[in-house]
Design a protein around this nucleic acid. Sequence first.
DNA 1: GAATCAAGTAACATACAAAGTATCTTGATA
DNA 2: TATCAAGATACTTTGTATGTTACTTGATTC
Lengths: 149, 149
Amino acid sequence: MRQDTRLSRLLHVLLHMAETDQPLTSQDIAAMLGSNAVVVRRIMAGLRDDGYVAAERGHGGGWRLVRRAEEITLADIYRSLGAPELFAFGLSNPAPDCLVERSVNATMDETIAAATAALMAKFTEIRLSDIQSDVAARRTRVAAGQEPR
Amino acid sequence: MRQDTRLSRLLHVLLHMAETDQPLTSQDIAAMLGSNAVVVRRIMAGLRDDGYVAAERGHGGGWRLVRRAEEITLADIYRSLGAPELFAFGLSNPAPDCLVERSVNATMDETIAAATAALMAKFTEIRLSDIQSDVAARRTRVAAGQEPR
DNA sequence: GAATCAAGTAACATACAAAGTATCTTGATA
DNA sequence: TATCAAGATACTTTGTATGTTACTTGATTC
């Protein structure tokens, strides 16, 4: 199944936004992502509505981060995307007549609920600033020739 | 994103197969699933190749379970499906030049790896026989009028 | 051995959501 | 007034599970 890359793309974008005071235009961001300015506006809209970024129009406009990297978790970003489906698998029929299928659904629902809770806990733990630390460490390794440029 | 319902469908089918000695034809199974005989053969092929079910052709043919319900876990079924993608989200670019994106990928990979391990552990714990117990309990509740027929 | 049944297989069609694209509007700045 | 950039709308593309048709292979029954 084709995968939803919005969360990963937003992390990438937000980290670049955190590294500069200059507003980034949708076009700039699209170039970073190998994508399209309209797609960028589409995936950024939720973050704007939730107050993590601000967009300004006209000359010198673009997107800015308006919260500190310590204050934004992966869970925040995920929710701003509208909390899309996390799992590639799911029930065939959510409300079947067949009793056997109802038991299958109950088992799957329980499994999915537990996995969702675990994943959301992880998302809540990870702050943008944690990834910034990883970037800094990676830059050091690259400078030391321990990781390809 | 549209979801992969093969795992859930196979559980449903295998439990019905476990309840009878009669072989079930692909057509019978398709009717249970509200699907198509060709789709059934497609999703059952892996289980046949892995020795969990057997298919026989001709008169009186069809699919039979050839392992006990205690001997089949959700993980077995998942693997027989070819271990399809578990998560609906993923990386945008698996091998980026951008250092920031590499850190994003590292973070996401780690999160996904942990969630995969947890989910597979759960899949390994759940046997077909566990769901059979739930079906039995559900039948009792339905007979007592505690759950809709 | 002819008819029938059912799995095996191949090729093609459909559905659907993320992603991509084109075009226009709104608002801000130079 | 021209230009820039977000906002918004409508449409297209893409990839994968699923659905469908048609044909082949193999087994059973009469």
